[in-house]
Amino acid sequence: MLYLDPHIRQLMLEDAMQAFPDECCGFFYGEEINDKRYIKSMLIVENAQIGDKRRRFEISPKDYLRAEEYAEEQGLQLLGVYHSHPNSPAFPSEQDRQAAQPFFSYIIMSIYERGRNNLLSWRLNDQFQFESEEVLEASAIA
């Protein structure tokens, strides 16, 4: 279960809208307590995909290593990756599944030209398949 601060959710959506029609990507950080993940910070990362960024994203190894360093500096856990699906549902594709890592939460945002959007989160199970992960507003923590 993910607890997402509305401000961070807004920043992710703004990144997705700014990148539109390309895909955006980045990391998010926080704490995991009893299987509940509290997202406290995020890091926008360049989509390093060479070629069509409207249907693919890639994060460079250098940016990945920097993201791990940022977690250590902040005393937070690197909890996952977000990216957008422009004009497409927030469901993971086969490309998403093949590249997915265990443990990480994968937030996917669907973004449409007319401003409609949706945000869902997914996690890989032991059979390398995605399972939906509930996303709640951080204000619901209490």
């Binding site: 895909e23 990507c25 995909q49 249907r55 693919r56 994203f57 890639e58 994060i59 190894p61 990945y64 290593l65 990756v81 990216h83 699906h85 422009p86 004009n87 497409s88 993971p92 594709s93 086969e94 490309q95 998403d96 590249a99 997915a100 890592q101 994968y106």
Partner: peptide, 30 residues
């Protein structure tokens, strides 16, 4: 250095070497 630019799996590592396992983060819509 990425081992693809070295000798892949046969890349030697010295006693003071640091080997990093770095997930390739990628994906995208259908």
């Amino acid at each position: 250095a990425d081992i693809r630019d070295l000798a892949l799996e046969q890349t030697p590592i010295s006693a003071d070497a640091v080997l990093s396992i770095v997930p390739a983060i990628a994906g995208g819509r259908q």
